[in-house]
Simulated scan of single mutants.
Amino acid sequence: MTQQPQQISPTGESGTEENPVAETTATADSTATEVTSTNTAVVGRSPARMAWTRLKRDKVSMVSLVLTVIFILAAIFAPVLTALGGWGPITSDVKSINPDIGNYPYGHFGGISAKHWLGVEPGTGFDLFARIVYGLRTSLAVGLISALLSTVVGVVVGLAAGYFGGWIDNLLSRIMDVVLAFPQLLFIIALTPVIQNAFQTDQHGGTDENLRLAVLILNISAFAWAYTARLVRGQVLSLREREFVDASRIMGAGWVHILFRQLLPNLWAPILIAFALAVPANITTEAALSYLGVGVVPPNPDWGALLSQASEYFLIDPTYLFIPGVLLLVLVLALNLLGDGVRDALDPRANRS
């Protein structure tokens, strides 16, 4: 067997060449130290932050978010915007309409001018910009409040049905089926005479506008909660079999604690999605009711009522129908696209290109 030659050091001691194993070990240790120092600098992100990051990557959702914020700010600052224009929502400018041709606006495009930015209403002389801004307030208020109420009721019912099961689940599920199958618009229209009589506040037939809005919100919420309840129920049926729920029962936690402290925090994503999609649906429903004469009481501004009135003047003044119609389309489309973007951002398993 051939032996490796040894090298003699200047001191007279024999030794070997530099050990490659020791060098590799030292390199690995330094690399591990660098990785450890790098990992310590990484900060964990919450699910909400990760969802916001996904949402920011979606250009359509961000454009929809910007449009939604603009509409909300316009509704909040409606008095400021109308003060800049110089006209209130029910302040008539009789000089802007021509009584010789059926009280249609002077000029082209429905009377659009520096005095009236979006023109005036035929017949009344109301400033269309002020009517649209205050009508946006009504539509957003009804849509948001009714969506909030329906979401709260739907979450409570869905939690109870999914967690308790048995006859409670059967009863609540049958109620959901009836509500989902009920013709909402026909039911409200059929009750219009009864509601109108209940609204009478004096002998002259006056109507309390706040009471009318409250009834609209309650009517819409009474039919919208079932969608959220069915969604939450399906999620709870899966979550109630998880280990953390069993651990809570073993530790003696009551059903209130399990429902609202254990299950509810794990349902915020589908609940937020349901709320985001309910708002545009409720706004559309409110506009349809006002269009059919069951919504906001004239002359109070509302987009559905504007579209209903504008249909009578469309052939001569199409601008009166075109402007509120396009704005309603943009608002509902932006809210729907934003709701879809929120759903995709909250679902990490969604297929994104």
Results as ranks from 00 to 15, higher is better:
71 F>G: 08
250 I>G: 05
187 F>Q: 05
192 T>Q: 15
234 G>E: 06
212 R>H: 05
169 D>Y: 04
330 V>K: 02
343 R>C: 01
25 T>H: 08
308 S>E: 14
26 A>R: 13
320 Y>G: 10
333 L>I: 12
335 L>I: 07
156 V>I: 14
27 T>P: 01
210 N>I: 09
319 T>E: 04
303 W>G: 08
150 S>Y: 02
25 T>K: 10
80 V>G: 00
296 V>A: 09
39 N>D: 12
40 T>N: 13
237 L>C: 02
80 V>L: 12
276 A>T: 15
263 L>G: 06
240 R>S: 05
267 L>K: 09
77 F>D: 05
82 T>Q: 10
117 W>C: 11
348 P>L: 01
6 Q>K: 06
257 H>W: 09
80 V>I: 10
120 V>G: 05
156 V>L: 13
282 N>V: 07
235 Q>S: 15
181 A>W: 00
118 L>E: 01
189 I>V: 15
19 N>V: 02
308 S>C: 02
201 T>Y: 12
185 L>F: 14
105 P>G: 03
18 E>I: 07
280 P>R: 11
294 V>N: 14
202 D>I: 07
335 L>W: 00
70 I>T: 06
37 S>A: 15
144 L>Q: 12
105 P>F: 03
83 A>Q: 07
39 N>C: 12
300 N>G: 09
91 T>Y: 08
192 T>P: 02
100 D>N: 10
183 P>I: 01
215 V>Q: 10
134 Y>Q: 08
158 G>Y: 00
189 I>M: 15
233 R>M: 10
306 L>S: 09
236 V>A: 12
284 T>I: 14
52 W>C: 13
234 G>F: 07
351 N>E: 12
246 D>K: 15
142 V>H: 12
63 V>G: 06
39 N>M: 15
276 A>Q: 05
268 W>S: 05
271 I>D: 01
18 E>S: 09
110 G>T: 08
230 R>F: 00
38 T>W: 14
4 Q>G: 08
148 L>I: 14
168 I>H: 13
